[in-house]
Design a protein around this nucleic acid. Sequence first.
DNA 1: GACAACTGTAACCGGCGCGATTACATATCA
DNA 2: TGATATGTAATCGCGCCGGTTACAGTTGTC
Lengths: 150, 150
Amino acid sequence: MASSCRFAFAIHILAVLALKREGGVTSDCLAASVNTNPVVIRRVVSTLRRAGLVCCAQGAGGGATLCRAPESIGLDEVYRAVEPLTAFSGHPHQPDLRCPVGRQIKVVLEEIHASAHQAFAAALAERTLAEVVAMLTESPRPPRRSRKAA
Amino acid sequence: MASSCRFAFAIHILAVLALKREGGVTSDCLAASVNTNPVVIRRVVSTLRRAGLVCCAQGAGGGATLCRAPESIGLDEVYRAVEPLTAFSGHPHQPDLRCPVGRQIKVVLEEIHASAHQAFAAALAERTLAEVVAMLTESPRPPRRSRKAA
DNA sequence: GACAACTGTAACCGGCGCGATTACATATCA
DNA sequence: TGATATGTAATCGCGCCGGTTACAGTTGTC
């Protein structure tokens, strides 16, 4: 599950790359948009590169570019690329095996967690990077009431 | 999302209570089965009590008892009782508002996360504590091969 | 070739979350 | 009254993770 911000950073980065179609984007530029350190960006981009989602050019004039169509990138793919897929951290220790519950609880918990996690990933899979970009570019909640009240 | 072991502990505790129908179970006893400190158990039990899932009796002869039918307790209820429902930790800082992505990314991320999280909870809701108990008590993968090989 | 502009990574720091533990107040039954 | 419990505050220790620095390697430009 993991509630780190790597996933958020990854989506942010990919959205920027999807919007700026031509040319590479440097980690400094991405870091400015995300508002963090360039090295943090490079770490995430490295992971995305290993997953085949982006390509990186080194040297002067280099940077990261999206190397697949935004319509073909499901958010579950991004999630799996960036989250290490932990083996469910529940029950840090070995439960009491003399107890009928302790003897089997781990297997049951793992199954429960697996099915819920799969549902989580399936929900992510229903959206693509292209949809994220579309959400980003459509008018941000047009003001309806008076322009005075907050 | 939160990958703490509180949820695992809660399921374990509730399963023990569901199995031992009569009488209260002390935190010492639960701690032995879970293999942790009684205070850790009491913290989780307190949360479950506030959620109306268990009742606690203080004093000698006291302990925790399930105060609802296991068939009526969905695992999503347990999850929500025990996990504080964080407001999605993505994007720790304010993104650059001059960037079209940074301006709206938080709203989009929150919506994405909300829908995926809802799918997660819905998957948990499909199982009850009674089913967990049934999984726990049914024969644990009957040995099929020779009784010699591990 | 020299230099500037980038990426890739290792190393380290600091803060936060959380489970474990101790300690103690309180409640209840015999 | 004393043994047995819960309830909870306080503290400790450790692991995770984002941030930062540092530096090696790569590439375009003059």
